[in-house]
Amino acid sequence: MDKIYIKGLEVFANHGVFKEEKNLGQKFVIDVELELDLSDAGRYDELKKTIHYGLLSEAIIEEFTKQSYDLLEKATYELCKFVLINYDVVSVKITVRKPWAPIKRNFDYVAVEMEKRWHKVFLAVGSNVGDKEKNIRNAIEILDKNEEVKIKKVSTLIETDPVGYLDQDKFLNGAIEIETIFSPKELMSELLRIEKELKRKRIIKDGPRTIDLDILLYDNLINDDEFVTLPHPRMEERTFVMEPLNEIAPNAIHPILNKRISMIYKEL
């Protein structure tokens, strides 16, 4: 992937824990590394095919100085998020140096470096309490309002029988493709927050619920974290998961089985 660099951009801002830092301000030095496709810019020599780094520099300065933060980490994170949301880039790496940090020793600078990117994620969504379709649409609408999430595709909703606990109404199930800046843990926390907002109650295991949101695939990531296991365990065994997922992502690959979703669904 191609890259654009901005190195040593000097900015005067008021970030810092101490009162003097907020009141007096100080110099910060910012390095920016953008990952994006520059093929068309190189081929056609047109400015509109790339990012105008002069305008980007001014936008970064405006964003960095519009609010005061205690931590350099927070200021750097917000800057990464700003670039990802407002510019057509795959990833951004930003280093913010603080050469006048309040340290009573000789040093060159203190710095924080963060790299953030858009991740492709597939979610499962289901409901079997109340107005099921409305519950699912509400969950998608809440997700879509989050600037750190982009809704890319939504499958048809299908009616399915319950699994596990059988004494309950049928489900509506679907799949969603999103792009997100969130890490897996951050995304799972956001999904749990949405479930709580939509009044999900966890009383019976596999029991009735107004809304159920699960992460199926997150890029090609494999992990065994108890909070969010990836890919979702046993997804390949569940028709109510694989049918809507196959509709929107037949060519996606299960990173453990090393098979396309279309093949898994056909075998299922």
Rank of each mutant, 00 (worst) to 15 (best):
T210R: 03
I60A: 05
I6M: 04
E21V: 05
E58C: 11
Y87G: 00
E62Y: 04
R43Y: 00
S57G: 06
L213Y: 07
M1R: 01
N106E: 15
I181K: 04
E62K: 14
P231G: 08
Y265A: 11
Y165A: 02
R202P: 13
L257E: 07
Y44W: 04
E33H: 08
F18I: 05
L79T: 03
N135G: 01
N220A: 08
S155G: 15
I94W: 02
R193L: 14
L213M: 03
L191V: 06
R105Q: 12
T95F: 02
E177R: 04
E190D: 13
A101G: 07
E35V: 10
E33V: 15
I256Y: 08
K104A: 12
D212V: 15
S68A: 12
K201W: 06
A59V: 14
K170I: 02
M242S: 03
E186R: 12
L24D: 10
V92P: 00
E243R: 06
L47E: 12
D167E: 11
E113K: 08
H52M: 02
S39P: 03
V228S: 08
I248V: 11
G130L: 03
L268T: 15
E78L: 08
K199L: 09
W100V: 14
V112N: 02
V241F: 14
D167G: 01
I176F: 06
M263N: 13
I140D: 09
K153A: 10
R234K: 12
F171M: 06
K74I: 15
I261S: 10
M235H: 12
D214S: 12
L9K: 13
P208Y: 10
E78M: 07
D88L: 09
S68D: 04
K19M: 06
Y77F: 12
N173H: 06
I142Q: 06
V154L: 03
E148D: 07
K116H: 13
K49A: 03
P233G: 02
G16T: 08
D45E: 02
I178R: 00
Q168P: 03
N128L: 05
Y53H: 14
K104W: 11
G174T: 00
I194G: 07
R260Y: 02
K266P: 00
V121W: 12
L157R: 00
K196C: 04
E195F: 13
I256C: 13
G25H: 13
E78G: 05
